[in-house]
């Protein structure tokens, strides 16, 4: 599904990612953890195609294609989805209009037929239930005036609508109370399929109580310094990141 090889990324001349290797297969859930400033969000945004990050080395292949060659919209159409850490408010663009345009463009690209108004509406109603969102959200402007929790649920709702092959959840748990976190996690779990994969980018372990990862990677100073299974996340919860830092510093020196 996704193969990252020796990825190096700079922002304004500062190297943030210093050689990342990661392979994600269909059906897998990977958690990427790490202390603040380790490069987690950078990795998520580079995958989505944000322009201000300069890829200085390495390669990313997504479903057999060179991801770095693609514009953000093409990546989305190919089935890569980013749940934003800070979903953007877009006054004047209704959720319905936004989703209709998004879904139609994506379906067209995939050679699927366009949904008529009725099919679109019933699809939307069904997916809203995934994240326990009210139908009235559909007539509101995208994220405008949404609470923090509503914004995060809205991201998962869009993921449900677009049915991506690879979803990257960038700190989707941050700022959520426990009830909202459970709703989001339930939504994500319902979207798990054998042919899709999820990357969870998170600082804390608590989301991983509800979405059980197959693999956990620890990112520190732009490199993956530890990889393991869900036990690694629990270990981090108990002992913090200091031991990771120490080990990493030792191996550098």
């Amino acid at each position: 599904m996704l193969e990252i090889k020796n990825l190096k990324v700079s922002v304004e001349g500062n190297e943030i990612l210093k050689g990342i290797d990661l392979q994600v297969n269909a059906g897998e859930i990977h958690a990427i953890m790490g202390p603040n400033g380790s490069g987690k969000s950078t990795l998520a945004n580079v995958l989505a195609g944000r322009e201000e990050f300069e890829v200085t080395g390495g390669s990313i292949s997504f479903r057999g294609k060179d991801l770095l060659e693609m514009a953000p919209e093409e990546r989305a159409k190919e089935g890569l989805f980013l749940a934003f850490q800070y979903p953007v408010e877009i006054p004047g663009v209704s959720m319905a209009n936004f989703l209709k345009q998004s879904l139609n463009e994506v379906r067209k690209y995939r050679g699927q037929e366009q949904l008529n108004a009725r099919a679109f509406l019933s699809n939307m109603r069904e997916k809203l239930k995934f994240v326990e969102m009210d139908e009235k959200f559909i007539s509101r402007s995208v994220n405008e005036g949404f609470s923090g929790g509503e914004k995060k649920r809205n991201e998962i709702f869009q993921m449900a609508m677009l049915e991506p092959y690879l979803a990257i959840l960038d700190e989707t748990d941050s700022g959520l109370d426990i009830d909202a976190l459970k709703i989001v996690a339930r939504g994500v779990n319902k979207l798990r399929r054998k042919d899709n994969a999820i990357i969870l980018v998170t600082h804390y372990q608590r989301l991983l109580n509800y979405i059980i990862p197959d693999f956990v990677h620890v990112l520190y100073k732009g490199k993956i310094v530890e990889s393991g299974d869900k036990e690694l996340a629990l270990h981090l919860e108990e002992y913090g990141y200091d031991w990771v830092k120490e080990e990493a510093e030792q191996s550098i020196t």
């Binding site: 195609g49 953000p72 919209e73 990546r75 989305a76 934003f84 877009i90 663009v93 690209y109 869009q158």
Partner: peptide
């Protein structure tokens, strides 16, 4: 970027935002 990440082409994304500007 948000709109493009949802598969909306750059041209359509721009026009959506321009229409949104006129909306109120």
């Amino acid at each position: 970027f948000y709109l493009e990440q949802r598969g909306i082409s750059a041209v359509n994304a721009k026009n959506l935002l321009r229409m949104a500007f006129a909306h109120d």
